[in-house]
Design a protein around this nucleic acid. Sequence first.
DNA 1: CTTTATTTGTCCGTATGTATG
DNA 2: ACATACATACGGACAAATAAA
Lengths: 75, 75
Amino acid sequence: MPAKPKWERIADEIRTQIESGELAPGAQLPSTAQLRAKYDVSAGVVRQAILVLQTKGLVEGVHGLGVFVTERSSS
Amino acid sequence: MPAKPKWERIADEIRTQIESGELAPGAQLPSTAQLRAKYDVSAGVVRQAILVLQTKGLVEGVHGLGVFVTERSSS
DNA sequence: CTTTATTTGTCCGTATGTATG
DNA sequence: ACATACATACGGACAAATAAA
């Protein structure tokens, strides 16, 4: 078993994309289904990663629409 | 249907106990099984509440030991 | 206005790893 | 060294919301 859980690896990957500017503020993240296929994991893992990012304030999920990057002052 | 999710209600309840000093820093939180019986929910719900509290830094979960209140100066 | 498609949100159950007795 | 108890991780299913036709 990997030292780091799958959901943490995915969360870190997305966070890196946000920090890199690859995912600009206001941009929509790939849907859970897309991420599920991309990382070949179940919905629960993606759900967990998104939830952590939400709690950290990096992204904001809107029910029925999608997950968007929180407008953060470009340091 | 409750306006707030079950896991959020549980998380708020636990947070209140910490702020009230009912759960002192270093004290162990009730096990998932205890909370599960107390709130009559499944382990997943309790796990979600615990995860949020962990991300917020209020508690700290140690694998194979239990969840403990983080040493935080009560204002 | 009703129906359908897409996406997030929540819930339940199971498997694995670690610490304790 | 073995058995038990607890916590975490993974996977899948169900429900609600929004937008478009």
